[in-house]
Lab assay of single mutants.
Amino acid sequence: SDLEELEKFAKTFKQRRIKLGFTQGDVGLAMGKLYGNDFSQTTISRFEALNLSFKNMCKLKPLLEKWLNDAESSP
């Protein structure tokens, strides 16, 4: 289901973010620079904790996926 997908992604996202050495705040700032939407550390934290509305989670997921792919592919 969509919800299970989101839960899986949130977990994976957190693990990969930590492995890359980024804080939640770093992610929020980087996404602001890249996509012009500033995200607070709290928002990233709540995403990882599945603590946002389903609609908000769905809106954030593609942006976070893109950020993660970019972060992992940059030298």
Results as ranks from 00 to 15, higher is better:
residue 28 G to A: 09
residue 74 S to G: 07
residue 54 F to L: 09
residue 60 L to C: 10
residue 65 E to N: 09
residue 63 L to C: 10
residue 67 W to D: 01
residue 17 R to S: 04
residue 74 S to P: 09
residue 47 F to C: 00
residue 71 A to E: 12
residue 60 L to V: 11
residue 60 L to W: 08
residue 62 P to L: 05
residue 36 G to S: 15
residue 61 K to P: 01
residue 62 P to S: 05
residue 41 Q to W: 07
residue 18 I to Y: 05
residue 64 L to T: 02
residue 67 W to M: 03
residue 72 E to V: 09
residue 53 S to Q: 08
residue 57 M to G: 05
residue 69 N to G: 14
residue 69 N to E: 12
residue 52 L to Y: 05
residue 69 N to P: 03
residue 64 L to D: 02
residue 58 C to G: 10
residue 18 I to D: 08
residue 73 S to H: 11
residue 64 L to R: 01
residue 61 K to W: 05
residue 46 R to E: 14
residue 24 Q to A: 02
residue 5 E to V: 07
residue 56 N to A: 13
residue 44 I to R: 00
residue 41 Q to K: 15
residue 56 N to H: 13
residue 47 F to N: 00
residue 73 S to E: 10
residue 72 E to I: 04
residue 72 E to Q: 11
residue 74 S to T: 10
residue 21 G to Q: 02
residue 52 L to I: 05
residue 55 K to E: 13
residue 35 Y to F: 05
residue 73 S to A: 11
residue 66 K to L: 08
residue 58 C to L: 11
residue 68 L to D: 01
residue 18 I to T: 09
residue 64 L to C: 06
residue 37 N to W: 08
residue 22 F to N: 10
residue 60 L to E: 00
residue 66 K to T: 12
residue 41 Q to H: 12
residue 53 S to R: 07
residue 29 L to P: 02
residue 50 L to G: 14
residue 53 S to V: 02
residue 37 N to Y: 05
residue 63 L to V: 10
residue 47 F to R: 00
residue 19 K to S: 15
residue 59 K to Q: 10
residue 16 R to G: 06
residue 72 E to L: 05
residue 70 D to R: 09
residue 47 F to H: 00
residue 73 S to D: 12
residue 31 M to T: 02
residue 51 N to R: 12
residue 70 D to W: 06
residue 67 W to A: 02
residue 57 M to E: 01
residue 71 A to K: 14
residue 63 L to A: 14
residue 51 N to W: 03
residue 37 N to E: 12
residue 59 K to V: 07
residue 61 K to V: 08
residue 67 W to L: 04
residue 37 N to Q: 09
residue 37 N to M: 11
residue 62 P to H: 11
residue 56 N to T: 15
residue 64 L to W: 00
residue 52 L to D: 11
residue 18 I to P: 00
residue 5 E to R: 12
residue 44 I to T: 01
residue 46 R to H: 10
residue 18 I to R: 09
residue 70 D to K: 09
residue 48 E to M: 01
residue 45 S to F: 04
residue 12 T to S: 08
residue 59 K to W: 06
residue 22 F to M: 02
residue 61 K to S: 05
residue 74 S to W: 09
residue 75 P to V: 15
residue 57 M to H: 01
residue 65 E to R: 04
residue 24 Q to S: 08
residue 56 N to K: 11
residue 31 M to V: 02
residue 48 E to W: 00
residue 50 L to N: 15
residue 2 D to G: 12
residue 29 L to V: 12
residue 44 I to D: 00
residue 43 T to N: 04
residue 44 I to V: 09
residue 46 R to W: 02
residue 33 K to W: 03
residue 63 L to E: 06
residue 27 V to D: 01
residue 68 L to F: 03
residue 21 G to D: 03
residue 67 W to R: 01
residue 68 L to G: 02
residue 74 S to R: 10
residue 71 A to S: 09
residue 64 L to F: 06
residue 58 C to Q: 15
residue 54 F to P: 09
residue 17 R to H: 02
residue 59 K to D: 10
residue 66 K to Q: 10
residue 28 G to T: 15
residue 62 P to F: 04
residue 48 E to N: 00
residue 11 K to W: 02
residue 65 E to G: 05
residue 75 P to S: 08
residue 19 K to L: 15
residue 45 S to P: 10
residue 70 D to L: 07
residue 44 I to Q: 00
residue 54 F to N: 10
residue 41 Q to E: 14
residue 52 L to E: 06
residue 71 A to P: 08
residue 67 W to T: 01
residue 57 M to D: 02
residue 5 E to K: 14
residue 74 S to E: 05
residue 73 S to R: 06
residue 53 S to C: 06
residue 53 S to F: 01
residue 41 Q to I: 08
residue 53 S to T: 12
residue 55 K to G: 13
residue 54 F to M: 15
residue 26 D to L: 04
residue 61 K to L: 04
residue 44 I to F: 01
residue 5 E to F: 07
residue 44 I to K: 00
residue 46 R to K: 15
residue 64 L to S: 01
residue 63 L to D: 04
residue 23 T to A: 05
residue 21 G to V: 01
residue 60 L to K: 07
residue 71 A to R: 11
residue 29 L to D: 09
residue 49 A to H: 13
residue 69 N to V: 10
residue 45 S to G: 10
residue 58 C to I: 13
residue 47 F to A: 01
residue 45 S to W: 06
residue 57 M to I: 03
residue 46 R to T: 05
residue 75 P to T: 15
residue 37 N to G: 14
residue 9 F to S: 05
residue 36 G to C: 05
residue 51 N to G: 12
residue 61 K to C: 04
residue 74 S to I: 10
residue 72 E to D: 10
residue 52 L to Q: 04
residue 35 Y to D: 11
residue 50 L to P: 02
residue 55 K to D: 14
residue 62 P to Y: 01
residue 52 L to F: 04
residue 75 P to R: 09
residue 66 K to M: 05
residue 55 K to H: 06
